[in-house]
Design a protein around this nucleic acid. Structure first.
Length: 454
RNA sequence: GCGCCCGUAGUUCAACGGAUAGAAUGGUGGUCUCCGAAGCCGCAUAUCCAGGUUCGAUUCCUGGCGGGCGCACCA
């Protein structure tokens, strides 16, 4: 995984948390790409140029190296590509050797995935990769042929436009020199191999029939918009009425302004970014020196480091393309996770000093501007939580939490809590407690854990 | 060629059709004998261009210009 993969994971994780918070029943499924042409390439590479020593030392690195090398070879020589495609067809038809190699690759990949998710506090209910649907593919294609939804064209099995919508809204048509031409969705290749459109259709079947989904959300990059319009349209023609939504997001660009791509370009590893983030947070914790143990500081550094990376991502509009920047993603100053966490820590610090000996009453008096501002901001949480799901935008929550933390920090400077008395003190303590809860809950909805000290 | 997305301070990003377009960073001036300074309080700089709809447009529509991505057997 490289940094380009974090958007799908973070956005999807956050939306699932918010939807559950609102009261929906959510099933999360990591649709791992474990069955496509890239495995034809990896299997070919495994057979011809695997460095077994390197595989032992750093499996993912070696797999990526092999994949890139084969990918480059296919570009230079058409024949190599044909060999890879052949390996894929053999795999999909159950060839024992290829299946064994594939299993090993998937195992190594999932191991790596677990490591990344562990550090990031990410969990999925299911990991039904593309391979899970293999047995469903041939019957699905046969069914679509039988119903006349799909037809054979140039050797491949494809779905053409049925002319039910205006050409400009038809995902199966494309305009070329003032003429509408077919832009079919291919569900089976001429060589018998299946594609991701096929597995996506099988996946929809599974989610509708077995999970009884009312809505299916796809958190996938914006470049795949056409693909999903085609797949959703094809599914509708098969009689599926479930609402399907493609929650698209922009690309993470390299310093050259081009997309990060696993296949060819140089990328930045995700684990690398997380490790660096945690390291920087640890250095800051050491500098602050709150008299915490090494183990406490390690855990705080993990929460802050992982939180910083998540917040950098989730505080942005999902549709915006952005340039990857170490400094931005790892910053601990300004509008970042530590800023929000620091506000939370400041609320906890006050109650720690009271040692639990406090009873809040409903005797409230809002007189200072900073008190009123904070109370108003707190009251907006419910509305904000609701707004997130309207357009599936966690950044609205991130923006709100930043404003809340900002308002709290100002309040904290302007209104001393512990030295106040009577109703004023009770009011301020109540504001602190409410801020504490909203920050903890809100950050939790972003997938960011909190810490009592930092 | 056709489609989708985008264009906002030097830079990186926000903004249900609504009030003086917000932050961060960088620059710059203050602020710790006072609940935690990863903080707080100041100063400066922006809606690509031209039309249109509207009481009101960064937002919606049309046309340019600029960038990214996608468009028959990759995912």
């Amino acid at each position: 995984m490289h940094v380009g993969h974090i958007r799908s994971t973070f956005i999807g994780d956050s939306l699932a948390r918010v939807a559950r918070f609102i009261g929906h029943k959510v099933i999360t499924d990591n649709h791992v790409g474990d069955w496509g042409t890239q495995f034809g390439m990896i299997i070919h590479g495994w057979k011809t140029q695997l460095d077994h020593e390197a595989l032992k030392n750093d499996p993912i690195h070696e797999l990526v190296r092999v994949y890139k090398a084969v990918n480059a070879a296919t570009k230079a020589d058409e024949a190599v590509l044909e060999v890879c495609k052949g390996e894929l067809v053999k795999l999909q038809q159950g060839d024992a050797e290829n299946l064994g190699t594939w299993k090993e690759c998937v195992r190594l990949t999932l191991e790596q995935l677990e490591k990344v998710y562990g550090a990031l506090d990410i969990k999925f209910d299911h990991y039904l990769g593309e391979s899970f649907y293999n047995d469903a593919l041939a019957p699905l294609v046969a069914d679509m042929l039988e119903k006349g939804i799909a037809t054979i064209s140039e050797g491949a099995t494809v779905v053409f436009s049925d002319g039910s919508v205006k050409p400009e809204n038809d995902p199966f048509l494309i305009k070329e020199k003032d003429e509408w031409k077919a832009a079919p969705c291919i569900i089976r290749k001429g060589d018998g191999g299946f594609l991701y459109a096929t597995t996506d259709l099988a996946t929809i079947d599974h989610r509708v029939k077995d999970w009884k989904a009312d809505e299916i959300w796809y958190v996938v990059g914006a470049p795949q918009q056409l693909h999903f319009r085609q797949v959703f349209a094809a599914a509708h023609r098969r009689g599926i009425t479930t609402e399907m939504i493609h929650i698209a997001f922009g690309s993470i660009l390299g310093p050259d302004g081009k997309m990060f791509k696993t296949r060819s370009g140089e990328t930045v590893g995700l684990l690398e970014v997380i490790d660096e983030a945690i390291e920087r947070a640890r250095a800051a914790a050491d500098e602050k020196d709150q008299g915490l143990s090494a183990a406490e500081k390690d855990e705080i550094a993990r929460i802050i480091g992982a939180g910083a990376v998540k917040y950098a991502e989730l505080s942005q509009n999902r549709l915006t393309d952005y340039k990857f920047s170490w400094d931005k993603m790892l910053s601990l100053q300004g509008n970042t996770a530590p800023y929000l966490l620091n506000a939370y820590v400041r609320t906890r610090s006050i109650f720690r000093k009271l040692d639990g000996a406090v009873t809040l009453t409903d005797e409230l008096t809002l007189t200072e501007p900073a008190e009123r501002a904070l109370a108003m901001k707190l009251a907006q949480f419910a509305e904000n939580a609701h707004d997130i799901l309207v357009d599936h935008r966690p950044n609205l929550l991130a923006n709100y939490l930043y404003e809340l933390a900002d308002t709290y920090h100002s309040f904290y400077e302007a209104c001393n809590v512990l030295r106040a008395e009577g109703a004023v003190r009770n009011t301020r303590l109540t504001l602190c407690e409410a801020t504490s809860r909203v920050l903890k809950t809100g950050l939790g909805l972003l997938g960011i854990q909190t810490t009592e000290r930092m």
